[in-house]
Simulated assay, not measured.
Amino acid sequence: MTVTIKDVAKRAGVSPSTVSRVISNHPRISEETSLRVRKVMDEIGYHPNMMAKSLVSRTTSTIAVILPRPADELFQNLFFSEVIRGIVTQSTRSGYDLLMATGTTEREELETVTRLVRGRRVDGILLLYSRANDPVIAMLKEADFPFAIIGRNEDYPDILTIDNDNVQASYDATRHLISQGHERIGFVSGPPNLIVSRDRLAGYTKAVREARLPVRSDWIVEGEFLQESGYRAMSLLMGLPERPTALVVVDDVVTFGILCGLVELGYSVPKDIALVSFNNIVFSELATPPISSIDIGIYQLGYTASQELIRFIQHEHPSHALRHIIPHRLVVRESSLRRS
């Protein structure tokens, strides 16, 4: 015999409409009622027909997570694994599934997101990147579709963003190197079209100029968020007639490439060059030497992004701020300490 929503309601002592609201994670249902109803659902083996629910409510209880290009290199960087862990944890607790998508080109990425939006395949979109002049964001704005960005956006101040204060974080990292007595400080950046790269470069530049130290273009190297980029940066920087004695590096994975390059070239960290990086992934502490890194709260970025997007989808956004800043902290380890 098929168990119905009425059976759940009768046994839990609530109305069928209350059971429906529990299934839909309605914000006005108390936690006590929700727990009681879900316990009854488990006890009598009731499983809601999500397809039928979707047809009636015109919702999917699904969020699309749009991964940055190129996807084949994505999980070489543990930032994305950790941020997705935060997204999955919160969305699961809220009763939402995840759909992950990407594209190999800008056009393919736009077409993918457009299909998801026009087909109403998801209730909201979460972008794991922020680029300048992004056609995907322009399309989502025009469609008035719920979406959020992990990062900062310069083009639209009225969209939901979850980010760190990357300018201040990079300023703090650079000031730490200055406090260790360094006067020739370089910067290894990410792709220039990403807002996070621009912000971290801006923080570095601000700190160096405040200290009346030189900002030299040959000490600033752009690349990708990959180990290979760090390795290539070392070949360029250490071959200069006058090289920097310290570096602010845009990402821990890039720093691993720098360490590999320095070992091959016969240099020692921090004796020959000091390093401060970003993200404080688990391997930063295990590197040789352990890497000083800005902890940006990666898991919390993902968790908060999922939480705020779901609130937006459920029309709670008027009472919430659109810009959410996750605090950062500098974790000082051996790679940046000046040796006497």
Rank of each mutant, 00 (worst) to 15 (best):
S336P: 12
V269W: 00
A207I: 06
M50P: 00
P289M: 07
V254F: 06
R323L: 11
L74K: 09
V22E: 04
N77K: 03
E32G: 08
F80K: 09
R243K: 15
V208Y: 06
R107Q: 14
D172I: 09
T2N: 13
E154H: 08
F147S: 01
T104M: 11
D218P: 08
T60C: 11
M234H: 04
Y231R: 14
Y171I: 03
V248P: 04
G86E: 09
E222R: 03
Q180A: 06
T174R: 01
M139Q: 10
E228V: 03
M41N: 02
A246W: 07
T114H: 12
A173R: 04
A9Y: 08
N166Q: 02
P214F: 06
R11D: 12
V136L: 03
T255S: 05
I125E: 06
T174N: 07
H324R: 13
G119V: 04
E264K: 07
H182S: 03
S277R: 03
V88Y: 11
S17Y: 08
G302A: 10
D163F: 01
L275I: 14
Q168D: 08
R93F: 06
Q76N: 14
S293W: 02
G124S: 00
R107Y: 10
Y46G: 08
V65F: 07
L240H: 09
E222L: 01
H315E: 14
G124P: 03
G186V: 00
K53Y: 13
Q76K: 13
Y46P: 03
G13V: 11
E210F: 00
A143E: 15
R232N: 13
A64N: 10
V113H: 04
S91G: 01
M1V: 12
D163N: 11
R209A: 13
L35S: 13
Y204C: 08
D295N: 13
T288F: 11
P191N: 04
R232L: 13
P191R: 03
H328E: 09
V253Q: 14
R85K: 15
D251P: 01
R232T: 09
I29E: 09
V8A: 10
D218Q: 12
